[in-house]
Simulated assay, not measured.
Amino acid sequence: MAQLRIHLVRHGEVYNPHGILYGRMPGYHLSERGFEMAARVAEALPERDPHICEVAASPLLRAQQTAAPLAQALGLEVGVEERVIEAGNDFEGSHVTARGVLTTPEWLYMARNPLRPSWGEPYLAQALRVRAAMMSMRARLATAAAARGLEEASGVLVSHQLPIWSTRLFTEGRPLAHDPRRRQCALASLTTFSDGSGTLDTVVYEDIAGDMPLTQPGTGA
């Protein structure tokens, strides 16, 4: 049986000069630094893993733009995977600050239960939909590997910080509620899931663009 891997790649930096929490809002594209990060992914990932057979991304523009250079370098098309889209968020379109949440009654009510969280899509729902997308890709990789006699096969899904982090926490059996400041999921980073027991349960993280200074506020993911 082939050794199978799924790389969850977070998209690159987004052009967002006003610091809006953009969530699933359309039109938010990569900044110049974001395109540099996408180029870094396209250069570094095939060197680390020469067995990539499939590339897909969230339908949001920033994810598709991050996936494009990698797919081009590999001679592949970028698929669209709806299940790895950004998390739903009721604060979307706002410039959110901790002080603003505490002083705006509507926002304070939305933040009443950070364990779920109450302001958006539950962490568990995010993890389950991303895991489902991963397992679908894994099944396709297994079929391709068997047909082509491959010993290894990998796939790439370009997604967003919170869905990736929720999926990692779920996979590792850790509590899903967390401090957002402690997420280990930098822009253009790799979170790789491989077949420990046949269920993509071995996780390795690498921040391949950590030396590239950010040029935008960084809200949204």
Rank of each mutant, 00 (worst) to 15 (best):
T171G: 00
H7N: 04
T191I: 11
C53L: 13
P175S: 14
M37E: 14
D207L: 12
D195G: 05
A73G: 15
A209W: 12
L187S: 13
T192H: 00
M134P: 00
G173Q: 13
M137A: 03
G155H: 03
G220V: 12
R174A: 02
E121A: 06
T167P: 01
H160N: 06
E47Q: 12
Q72R: 08
D90Y: 11
A133P: 00
C185A: 15
L102W: 05
H29E: 06
N113C: 01
L176E: 10
A153Q: 05
F35E: 13
T103R: 13
V78W: 02
A153K: 06
G218H: 13
Y123R: 04
G75Y: 10
R48I: 09
P69A: 01
P163C: 06
G149N: 11
T103N: 12
L102I: 04
A186N: 10
E152S: 09
F170A: 04
T199K: 13
R182I: 02
S166T: 08
S58N: 05
G19N: 12
A57T: 04
N113E: 15
R99W: 06
D195M: 02
V203Y: 00
V204K: 01
V204C: 04
A98D: 08
Q184F: 08
G120F: 06
R131S: 02
V204W: 01
G149I: 14
Y28F: 15
L102S: 15
L115K: 06
A142I: 06
L150N: 07
L45K: 03
R168D: 05
A133T: 07
F91H: 13
G173H: 09
A87P: 04
L70W: 12
M134Y: 01
T199Q: 14
S197P: 05
E32T: 12
H18D: 15
T202A: 12
R24P: 09
T192S: 01
G100M: 12
H29W: 10
E77C: 03
H95K: 14
F193L: 03
Y15G: 07
A186P: 13
R140Y: 00
G155N: 01
E81N: 05
G88K: 04
T199C: 07
D179W: 11
A125I: 09
I20P: 06
I52N: 00
E121D: 10
R62W: 02
R10K: 05
T103S: 12
R174Q: 11
E13Q: 15
R168I: 01
Y22G: 09
L61W: 05
Q216E: 14
D90C: 08
P114E: 01
I6N: 09
I85N: 09
R174L: 03
Q126A: 07
L115V: 11
Q216M: 14
R182F: 11
Y28D: 11
L102C: 09
T199R: 15
R116K: 04
A56R: 02
A132P: 04
T104A: 09
L141Q: 09
T219K: 10
L30F: 03
R83V: 05
G210P: 15
R112H: 10
